[in-house]
Nucleic acid binder design. Sequence first.
DNA 1: AGGAGCTATTAGGCCAGCCTAACTTTTACC
DNA 2: GGTAAAAGTTAGGCTGGCCTAATAGCTCCT
Lengths: 160, 160
Amino acid sequence: MDVHLTPNMEMYLKTILEIDLEGSEARVKMIADRLGVTMPSVSGAVDNLRKKGLVGHNPYGKVALTEEGRIVALKVKEQNDLLYRFLREVLGVPDRIAKEDACTLEHVVSRTTLNRLSRFLEFVQVCPLGPGDIVADFVNWVNETDQARGAQPQQERTAS
Amino acid sequence: MDVHLTPNMEMYLKTILEIDLEGSEARVKMIADRLGVTMPSVSGAVDNLRKKGLVGHNPYGKVALTEEGRIVALKVKEQNDLLYRFLREVLGVPDRIAKEDACTLEHVVSRTTLNRLSRFLEFVQVCPLGPGDIVADFVNWVNETDQARGAQPQQERTAS
DNA sequence: AGGAGCTATTAGGCCAGCCTAACTTTTACC
DNA sequence: GGTAAAAGTTAGGCTGGCCTAATAGCTCCT
């Protein structure tokens, strides 16, 4: 019981969970469309996950998470949510980018760091140190310094 | 001039830079040892980078960054440093894990997020909002709540 | 100078993931 | 109920990255 999955396999699992949470049946085509891959790729991946006991699937049928698969998928989703919230709520990263980054990071960040991140989110929200809202302060500070730096634009727009 | 490299190629490049910064010649074996791969793997990677114009190398010779390779490698290293500092200094992640995570993340985090992260680091250090040191406060708060939660251990030690 | 031993390269194989093309099954509609 | 379209699978090929085994080149020491 410690399935170690590649990032891609985790993505398949998470996608199946998401479809499931929306109340739909996970079909190969649907998964393919969401992940932007072709159906044969999904067929292969599903077979892989089936062999690992994480999904149930008979040919031409729907794909369903097993008990264990669901646990793994939920863990991935949790990690995604945590990272997304941090990027959005603390760093103020634009929504689209926060989603993309969270989706990449969810597979590779250590448990330890995630736990710390979770604590940090809690911390800035409960904000047990008084009136100051750290996040708001950060946003204000960024805006102010952005203005002040108007002249010397740092290396924000990097050469491409 | 916008070489897009895989994470692995970036790692090779960064490793060569590091050896260089230590004042040594980058030899295939040295790179292999540092990255924990075999020499043939390095041979292949170096050839790859040479074809992209990022390193110079003639057979049985040393590997040296080109002008452009150096720029890319420095960028990667910068990203690593930034992430490492954030993990260590803000989140308080243990050193070894911070290094590992930074090394993974350096290749996959968006420029936007890195810029935000950089600003955040600046922010918590300049700490323009008064006496409170956010990081110290965070550490204290974690310790306090850790204690308070002694009974219900959360899900810290995850099943393995 | 010549051979031992280290360093490096080439050759060839494996795995994960993706693709297209071709085939099969299911579905849905007339 | 038969047939066309959609969904799914199988086959085969590609890339990146790693490995081992075998070969080739360097270096150094006697």
